[in-house]
Design a protein around this nucleic acid. Sequence first.
DNA 1: GATGAATGAGCATTCATTCAT
DNA 2: AATGAATGAATGCTCATTCAT
Lengths: 212, 212, 212, 212
Amino acid sequence: MSTIPPRLTRAEQRERTREKLLDAAADAFAEHGFEGASIDDIAARAGFTRGAFYSNFADKTELLVTLCDRRIAGFAHFELPRILAIPEEQRLAAVARWLAAEAPPLELLLVLELARQRGQSPDTAAALDRVVDRLLAGIEQLLAIGGEGLADLPDAEREVRARAVLAAVAGTNLLDHLGVDADARVIELLLAGIADPATSATGAGSAHGSHA
Amino acid sequence: MSTIPPRLTRAEQRERTREKLLDAAADAFAEHGFEGASIDDIAARAGFTRGAFYSNFADKTELLVTLCDRRIAGFAHFELPRILAIPEEQRLAAVARWLAAEAPPLELLLVLELARQRGQSPDTAAALDRVVDRLLAGIEQLLAIGGEGLADLPDAEREVRARAVLAAVAGTNLLDHLGVDADARVIELLLAGIADPATSATGAGSAHGSHA
Amino acid sequence: MSTIPPRLTRAEQRERTREKLLDAAADAFAEHGFEGASIDDIAARAGFTRGAFYSNFADKTELLVTLCDRRIAGFAHFELPRILAIPEEQRLAAVARWLAAEAPPLELLLVLELARQRGQSPDTAAALDRVVDRLLAGIEQLLAIGGEGLADLPDAEREVRARAVLAAVAGTNLLDHLGVDADARVIELLLAGIADPATSATGAGSAHGSHA
Amino acid sequence: MSTIPPRLTRAEQRERTREKLLDAAADAFAEHGFEGASIDDIAARAGFTRGAFYSNFADKTELLVTLCDRRIAGFAHFELPRILAIPEEQRLAAVARWLAAEAPPLELLLVLELARQRGQSPDTAAALDRVVDRLLAGIEQLLAIGGEGLADLPDAEREVRARAVLAAVAGTNLLDHLGVDADARVIELLLAGIADPATSATGAGSAHGSHA
DNA sequence: GATGAATGAGCATTCATTCAT
DNA sequence: AATGAATGAATGCTCATTCAT
């Protein structure tokens, strides 16, 4: 009836609906897991009915893929540049603070669900690879530009350390879900070895020249 | 009248069935998650039908609880004493090797599933608390007797480090499931800071000055 | 853009589906009892699949509750006024005829099933009370306006007679299910004493002197 | 180990077990219906496990058949002779009292379950016929010897009245299960017409010459 | 685009029944 | 005769998905 042009175009409206559904899904997945979350619940959390969901996503797996993709893109396009822009001497502290944040944009348990659905479709498998690759690449960038001598490490070493950071993030994430407090001190302990260019490569437990 | 006594008594036979079902469940949960794993699949993997399952467990949640309980008991009664018996200078290496093992007895993602089912019943909630408590207590023991000066740390500090170790184990676990290689080198990097009694508490990333 | 309006609105369509399911359920319950009737069977009898059932009722018990409620409402709103409108001298005959009808709207065995499910939920218990109360209230109305001196009976006496009528209806109902013919003559014999205002209260079997 | 002869022979012991199971079944059926009662529950109520059940009955239907048979036999061999032995003038009162008893040996709802299982096997169908026939025959006997002029009624009329009595018993039974009080006064009202040889056969409600 | 009635595959769970003990 | 572990058919129910509105 009204002829007043809508504030939001069709596309914007649609995007807003998608965003609400994705946020709702993230909550539902965190609470019940991918299998345990129902589409009705997700739609209801977003303030819609299941019809809205199917207008925007082909199925639950596509929702998961989209969600993971957006989160990793958010990391690559927003978090990462922001951190890289921080002066070198405060950078590691910033990273630690970011890791300790309540809901970091990298819900790694989400990626775990993606890994479990890997067999569902080629798209899903591709999405998993994409997400993990971008994740590790982003972390490697952080380390490459990171001060304190990390820039001088050989590529292979930096790649290993990126995986270690990912493990630290993942572990922190999991602890949170287990109800165990993963505070700044815990993160600091986990990152200490990784951030020290001198941590030796000669064997476990030898981090500080203990076998001298 | 009586025939030759059977090799296995009824109770033994039953226990063997339970064990098989528990092992099968661990596999199925790792592959599809708690919600995603079907009882039919679990029973079939164990070589039984669903009836055998219900003859041994009240429901799927009880299976999960039992599984977590057994794994943590296995850790406390077998793994922990074994590691503690290792001479001090090889201990950290042994821990690292143990963490890197394919299927360490602490499937922490299992405990995550338990956390998600917490609301199911008081038993489930209690089981979660029990498991997490024993887990942290075991790790603290390890650290207390651990060489390299860790024994001298104040209790509070050791407690924080126990949580950090748990995060390291959890992260390693998750990486494995994500298809990212969490090899000995990664574990070494994660543990380096934790194992160094001197890792300072003054801020993230300050580890590099600790061995000066 | 819009096509010709449908003959039935969505709500009407839904109501029609519910009605069909309720009728099918009445048949299935009469044949196999509440526990013995399967939802698949009920849905199939109504020409639907089980999904339609769960789209309209929360569970089997709610179906039973709804069914009993509708039957008693049908009795109160349709049968009762119809009978009360009949001229006094033909009324008892009409009641008898109604009782003898193949499927009177008061399937009392249905209410028996409700009684057995009483513990299921507060709703179920409330429904049982509601149904029995309305049933007795309706019968009392019948007796109050009934001719032949019943109108002059004290309230307590009329209440007892209402219960006797209910027993007669129930008995007739059960006989039918047992394969024993409960024809008009049987009903007449059962109602004779109840309908006679003079039936004494001094002991069983004393009716024969009442018309002296 | 013990050589002392058992007080009960094997057969007696077996019979005692059967009896306990039958009584337990009667309770369970009354509470949950035939379909709703589980064999485990029945066995447990009797103080046994399901194995004892299967040592004594082929299946649940056979249990029901046996139960109905025993109850009707009990009626024919114990209740009926006892009532027939009562002096004529107190007999109807005795019948009324018997009907009002808490748990008359004729649980007609049990017979209803039998009717529902009729299709199960020829044995079941035969049992149903047997039970209903003996029931009606017993009641006819009561009426035939009954005083107050009933003895002079033609056979066909007595047969109709037997059915009416059965309906009265059934109705009373059902009322009890519905939580409606079916006291002596209710029974008296139901039996009044049946017991009066003069209740006319010309139409409903005409019991007392109302159409004169 | 969104709704919600209906579908139907899938799943947890119950339970009658069997059989080795 | 009784036990209880295991079976497997049956059933209530959930939920992803479709489609007419």
